[in-house]
């Protein structure tokens, strides 16, 4: 149903690091759930429109009027690694 390789691929897409045991377990559990889910494959849905929203709304917009921003101190308050003026991260591509 869903194999090791697929589990690893999806985990990388989702930025999750799985242990070997988790990979095995995930493959089995996801396969079980997908087995159930795949029953929707039996339905004839060709002419059915998809619903992403049950609320029938359109054009909900906001006037272009500035609202107060956070102070920098406040913005950085919860940062695991605040570096003076910003949020520090390892550079992409480094390592």
């Amino acid at each position: 149903m869903i194999d090791r390789e697929q589990v690893l691929h999806v985990a990388r897409l989702a930025r999750l690091e799985l242990t070997e045991a988790e990979v095995e377990r995930m493959a089995a559990e996801l396969s079980g759930v997908l087995d159930h889910i795949e029953r929707i494959g039996e339905l004839d849905l060709d002419r059915v429109e998809p619903t992403s929203h049950v609320v029938a709304l359109e054009n909900v917009l906001r006037a272009d009027e500035p609202a107060p921003s956070l102070s920098r101190e406040r913005a950085l308050a919860g940062a695991p690694d605040a570096a003076g003026a910003g949020f520090r991260v390892p550079s992409p591509g480094a390592s």
């Binding site: 003076g84 910003g86 520090r88 992409p92 591509g93």
Partner: peptide, 19 residues
């Protein structure tokens, strides 16, 4: 992303700061 490394380029810098 403001690269904190000396080169200022994407490659080689070790840390970056997000603004």
């Amino acid at each position: 992303l403001v690269h904190a490394g000396s080169s200022g380029r994407i490659h080689g810098a070790e840390a970056s700061v997000v603004d």
